Amino acid sequence: MRAEIRRIHRLLGSATIYVTHDQDEALSLADRIVVLRDGGVRQIGTPQQLFNRPAHLDVAEFMGFRNALPATIVRKQGDDVEMSLSGAFLRGKGMDQAAAGAVVAAIRPADLVPQPDGAIVATVTGMEYSGDYFLGSGRTAEGYEVFFRARDAIGQGEQVRLGAPADRILVYAREEGQ
C-alpha cells in the first residue's frame, strides 16, 4: 500500500499530507516529516535528519529510541557527553542544552548489545528470536526496562552487561517526570 501511495503522489506531482503514528510509514513515504506533540511542532526535517538526529526525546522515541535511561552528566565538551549511569560511566552525544545535571540517555535496541565491559547491567526478562539475531529485554537494578539485540540467546534471569557506541547514544535534558 505504501508503494502505491508513493506512486500516486509522484504521478500527481503535488504536495501530499499523510498522517501516521507509524515510524516505518513516515520514513518510507515522506520527503519531509513534521513531528507534532500536543498540537505543536516538535521537529521538521528529512527522514534521515529525524532518524539520525532527533531534536527532542519524544521525537527520538518515535524514531525508535526505546531505551530512555536517566543519567547524570559528569563532563561535557561540545556535544560529547560523559555520564554516570547507575554508578558506571557512559559516553554519548548531547542533543540539546543539557549542560549539567540530570539527563536521559536514549539508545535504540539495535545499538545496545552485550559487551564484556558494558556500562548498563540488566537481568534478562525475555528473548525473542528474530532470524539473524535475538531481541532481548531486561531490567536494571534500579528497575528500568531495557531492550537490546544479541547474536545468541541469553537465559531469563541471567545478568548481561550492555553497551553501545558513543555516537549512537543521544543525550537529552531530563524533563519533569522522567
Rank of each mutant, 00 (worst) to 15 (best):
3 A>H: 11
4 E>A: 11
4 E>V: 10
5 I>P: 00
6 R>V: 10
6 R>C: 04
6 R>G: 04
7 R>F: 04
8 I>V: 14
12 L>W: 05
19 V>C: 10
20 T>E: 07
20 T>L: 09
20 T>S: 05
21 H>P: 08
22 D>R: 07
23 Q>E: 09
26 A>F: 02
26 A>K: 00
28 S>C: 06
29 L>F: 04
29 L>E: 05
30 A>R: 05
31 D>C: 07
36 L>E: 05
38 D>H: 15
38 D>A: 14
39 G>T: 09
40 G>V: 14
42 R>T: 03
43 Q>F: 02
44 I>R: 02
49 Q>Y: 00
49 Q>D: 13
50 L>T: 00
51 F>R: 03
52 N>H: 10
54 P>C: 07
54 P>N: 05
58 D>Q: 05
59 V>H: 00
59 V>I: 01
61 E>H: 12
61 E>V: 09
62 F>V: 01
63 M>K: 00
65 F>R: 02
66 R>H: 12
67 N>G: 06
71 A>D: 06
71 A>K: 03
72 T>W: 06
76 K>C: 08
78 G>T: 09
80 D>F: 07
83 M>D: 02
85 L>I: 15
87 G>S: 08
87 G>M: 11
93 K>P: 03
95 M>H: 03
95 M>I: 06
96 D>L: 02
100 A>F: 10
100 A>W: 08
101 G>L: 08
101 G>Q: 09
103 V>I: 14
105 A>K: 02
105 A>N: 04
107 I>P: 02
109 P>N: 08
109 P>F: 03
110 A>E: 15
112 L>C: 06
116 P>D: 14
117 D>F: 03
124 V>A: 06
125 T>L: 10
125 T>C: 08
126 G>P: 05
127 M>T: 09
130 S>V: 11
130 S>G: 12
132 D>Q: 12
132 D>L: 11
132 D>K: 11
136 G>Q: 00
137 S>G: 13
138 G>Y: 05
138 G>E: 03
140 T>R: 02
141 A>I: 11
141 A>G: 10
141 A>R: 10
142 E>P: 04
142 E>M: 10
144 Y>A: 13
144 Y>V: 06
145 E>A: 14
145 E>H: 13
146 V>S: 02
148 F>L: 08
149 R>V: 05
151 R>H: 12
151 R>Q: 13
152 D>C: 09
152 D>L: 12
152 D>R: 15
152 D>A: 15
156 Q>F: 11
158 E>Q: 15
158 E>H: 12
159 Q>N: 14
163 G>Y: 00
163 G>A: 12
169 I>C: 04
169 I>K: 00
170 L>H: 14
171 V>K: 00
175 E>V: 11
177 G>A: 14
178 Q>N: 12
